[in-house]
Design a binder for these strands. Structure first.
Lengths: 207, 207
DNA sequence: TATGTTAACATACAAATGTATGGTAATTAT
DNA sequence: ATAATTACCATACATTTGTATGTTAACATA
């Protein structure tokens, strides 16, 4: 069993996870010091030593940014899920997480991306099932053919995006569904983000 | 359109991709120099400049390991697929790739992991479909309940792994299928690796 | 021929980086 | 009361790292 981290050590580890998973590159001592307002790298240095001693990270000596996470067999790391989504039903993105998934290390999320949990089988035409996690990047501009999460008058859809000359079409994976054409009758329309991937946990799943 | 890379520049870019995706951290100039047997970092430095000029990477000045990939909107990077797998049919892992997928940047693969493409719908009970990519890590020891890729007398299965006292059970997702119990009648049994995740491209798909 | 690109080398330097050592203060455990 | 842990600071130092500048050579192109 791993030893408990102190509050500060925990927040530093969280920052490490954030940087490594989000930015893709571990921070330097100076980076961490700057982020927490420390005047000295040695402070961070000592926190790292403490966190390493408790087994949460591994450091490669002398190596810049040589920090590795050792969480959960190195393959799972906690990530907040910000909401649930199902075609035709309201999408809710909470300020706080509704749940936490152990996202595998293989899923390095682009910064500012967030996770939505798919509820219900309404997306099964796109082979996305209840319980699947979609990774949504809000910083990308939607290109034709990409699957996006969009809001239509308080309803959320996950559909393929096509921009025509003067209108926008949201096309379902399933040919039985007619495309949704965005026009004046939708007071609020907004592309929340682009689905850059889906992940399905290989952990035991319900039913 | 991006300019063509020379052979050497390409191999350096490949090394960069390998390190960033596999090891999780971009290499330093010295790392690259050492790998290619260069006696000088300046050689790598100039290659980096050339590769950046052609638009394949972006460098953060003065920042150690400050190399970003800019491939395909920064979100897709080529990865070899080493074979195909379908329950009940032979698994083939070729020395060379049978195909290449544009794996999204979100999928940072643990080192030495490889990709297998699922062919056929025989895994649909586990909600895995034809065309899906499973990420297989050969370096993990199978724990009870994990989904593994295993070889049984030249046939390959993807099933949930359970180790009992003296035997091993491979359980299907679908309760209609009886568990496979590993005993003497299987001359060759080997766990190829553990499925740490699946990825489904959001690109246009056939059918 | 002249020019440009590619591909390697060497040297030099400032800044970034990790590390070592020691100090202070507060808190907690023995 | 003493010792240990935590949490910060300061200073110093050797390497690492990125960068700048030149040199040499091969090769292709205009």
């Amino acid at each position: 069993m791993q030893k408990e981290l102190t509050t500060i050590q925990k927040s530093i580890l969280d920052f490490l996870i954030d940087q490594i998973k989000g930015k893709g590159i571990p921070p330097t001592l100076a980076d961490v010091a700057k982020h927490f307002g420390y005047k000295n790298r040695a402070t961070v240095q000592q926190h790292f030593q403490a966190i390493e001693k408790k087994g949460y990270i591994r450091k490669s000596p002398k190596l810049s940014r040589g920090i590795e996470l050792t969480l959960e067999d190195k393959f799972f790391v906690p990530r907040p899920i910000l909401g649930e989504v199902a075609a035709g039903n309201p999408l809710t993105i909470y300020p706080d997480a509704i749940d936490t998934i152990k996202l595998p290390t293989i899923a390095k999320m682009p910064q500012d991306s967030f996770l939505l949990k798919v509820k219900g089988d309404s997306l099964k035409d796109a082979y996305i099932f209840s319980g699947d996690i979609v990774i949504v990047n809000p910083n990308l501009e939607a290109k034709n053919g990409q699957i996006v999460v969009a809001i239509l008058d308080d309803a959320a859809v996950v559909k393929r995006f096509y921009k025509k000359r003067s209108e926008i079409e949201l096309v379902s994976e399933n040919p039985e569904y007619n495309p949704i054409v965005i026009d004046k009758k939708y007071a609020s329309f907004k592309v929340v983000g682009i689905v850059v991937g889906i992940y399905r946990s290989m952990e035991k799943k319900a039913g």
